[in-house]
């Protein structure tokens, strides 16, 4: 039998169905945790935020969302940013601002090869590069590549137009590619 859609499970959860809770939790706790970790760069904070997201979910008393997944990520994202602001961190501290990222973009995207192939220390390099993206670009990349959301869903989660999502993704990818390839070239020169 096909797995039940999220909206059905959520509606059952609202009526006190424990099995629906367990299914939704198994489905979304790991990817949500990954999203929160990558967004905040803080494991402990990510765990706390994950708990907070699910507590809000279970106690929700409003009109059921039409599109559960996008709505869930919206809650997670908003909680993450509120928490970062409460801790006095406007951005993950290593991230570029949008203006800084423009400078980096100009610097890194000249004469780059077509394909990004990384040799070693991949995980660390990728993580660091992601952290350097401005928040607004990083969240789009996270939602697209790690959470598998469509561009339309991402637009709903971050509450901007589809065009803005595409533009942010475009710049993020250029920047990422540029940073990663530049690092790789430096590595090869050594």
């Amino acid at each position: 039998m096909d797995p039940l859609p999220d909206e059905t499970l959520f509606a059952r959860l609202m009526k006190g169905d424990e099995e629906a809770l367990e299914t939704l939790f198994a489905r979304y706790a790991p990817p949500l945790y990954g999203f929160l970790w990558r967004l905040t760069s803080d494991q402990a904070l990510a765990e706390d935020l994950l708990q907070e997201v699910f507590i809000r979910l279970v106690n929700y008393a409003g009109k059921p969302p039409l599109y559960f997944r996008a709505w869930l990520y919206t809650i997670a994202r908003n909680l993450a940013y509120s928490s970062l602001r409460a801790h006095g961190r406007e951005q993950a501290h290593r991230a570029y601002s949008v203006a800084e990222s423009d400078e980096v973009l100009k610097d890194t995207t000249q004469n780059l090869p077509e394909k990004v192939i990384l040799s070693r220390d991949n995980e660390e390099r990728v993580r660091q590069s992601l952290e350097r993206l401005p928040d607004e670009q990083r969240e789009v990349v996270l939602l697209r590549f790690y959470q598998g959301l469509s561009l339309e869903e991402i637009a709903a989660v971050v509450e901007v137009s589809l065009g803005t999502v595409k533009s942010r993704l475009y710049r993020a990818l250029r920047l990422l590619r540029g940073m990663l390839l530049r690092e790789e070239m430096k590595e090869n020169e050594r």
């Binding site: 424990e18 507590i55 990384l118």
Partner: peptide, 30 residues
Amino acid sequence: VLKKSEPPPLAPEKMEALLATLRPMVAARR
């Protein structure tokens, strides 16, 4: 390339502990 970056795993005990926190809230709704 991006998939090479994995988050630190969420321990099963922590998942279970979180679920245990949520179950009474769900029961209250019931």
